[in-house]
Design a protein around this nucleic acid. Sequence first.
RNA 1: GGAGAGAUGGCCGAGUUGGUCGAAGGCGCUCGACUCGAAAUCGAGUAAACCGUGAUGAGCGGUUUCUAGGGUUCGAAUCCCUAUCUCUCCGCCA
Length: 425
Amino acid sequence: MLDFKFVRGNPKIVQDALAKRGSQISLDSFLQLEEQRRDKLFVVEQMKSRRNIVSEEIGRLKKSGKEAKDMVLEMRELSNQIKERDEEIRSLEEQLQSILLDIPNIPHETVPVGSGESDNPTVRMWGRPRNFDFEPKSHWDIGEALDILDFERGGKVTGTRFSFYKGLGAHLERSVFNFMLDLHTTEHGYVEIFPPFMVNRDSMVGTGQLPKFAEDMFKIEGMEYYLIPTAEVPVTNLYRNEILDGENLPIYHCAYSACFRAEAGAAGRDTRGLIRQHQFNKVELVNFCRPDQSYAELEKLTGNAERVLQLLGLPYRVVILCTGDLSFSSAKTYDIEVWLPSSQGYREISSCSNFEDFQARRAGIRFRNQKGKVELVHTLNGSGLAVGRTVAAILENYQEADGTITIPEVLQPYMGTDRISLNQK
RNA sequence: GGAGAGAUGGCCGAGUUGGUCGAAGGCGCUCGACUCGAAAUCGAGUAAACCGUGAUGAGCGGUUUCUAGGGUUCGAAUCCCUAUCUCUCCGCCA
């Protein structure tokens, strides 16, 4: 959410910035409603001030045994008027709030202007795709051939976009996220969180999933609980409506969670394999910091996510999302894309964003600065990494001509083996 | 799921015959005194949001907030209703 006063004072800047994203938003009605609100608020506050004064006077009179009938009658009338006006103001505020909640964040000045994915510049590349002396198979073919992934039964037991991992496949999945958590907690200084996988509505609004993107979420029937689409939601909301001590910033949290996404707009895309499931595992990195730190922290956080791929020996590239591809809440985002041999292309495996104060304002996450003043924190997060996609990348990049999978060295202690082959326990 | 108790400021904790209560007291924190310095002691200060004024600063004036939302009343932390959460006992369960 953008700042009320900033939007009010700088409608032109806001509109121009949003146009770069491809959002045509008119602020006229917002500005009108806001002016009405302030006028009414001013009047009603004066009325309340009078009511307070007179009510006090009535109390004093009654105490000294005198009557105050006229005053009581006058105040009864005044109170009714106040009630009406409060109601009007409340309605105006609701309208303003709902407009503001639907306005995306303003892109940072370093974000390149562009209209979509094809305009995202590559920032850097790491590793070199391997040359196969055989035709590399897709991870779903590998997984089924080795009997470690079962998509068909996933469909039977639950439905499309659900799957089973089996044997060393299941073991590989948990090895991967344990490795990630260990790396981030021991080498990168993150404090691990194990969050609830369901959150209430306020939390979803706090990080920006609601109200705008309700159709992407799974909601529990009959309750205001939602399955989390990412650990970002519970972990960022950990400090919702709190004032943190500025001395403790930045706060670094990492969290494993299952993630649930309805994938409403993705019909027909990535229907095979682990790339786009309704339920997947992810290790998330979350950072709360002072405004002056956040862009340096974004670089650091992105580097922490990259480190996972480097240690796994998986080639990747980092792109910066242009204004047209930037997500709703983000001011600046780097995507990390891993090399997938079966599609001869790079595929998103992490998205690292600085939200500046956009989420903090929605969620009321603040800190006390050195002068003792309260300020909004900046929030950042990034995948560190998406586990299913990492497994897919390992299967594809480390497949051998004989159909087995070599386990990357850093995972061997977790796996207890250096290879996955058919019928291996 | 059944029965009961409770939710007050950064924390603990008064306040429940409605009135001057943003709220006693303690702790914590900040500043000052004492001290070579520290501890102890003493003194002062110590919530947030919004509106107006002002430079979107300081200050000043106002409004709101005692879990949240409604209600009663001239006036509610105090009375009523609802929700949420916490605790105790019983039941159930991993």
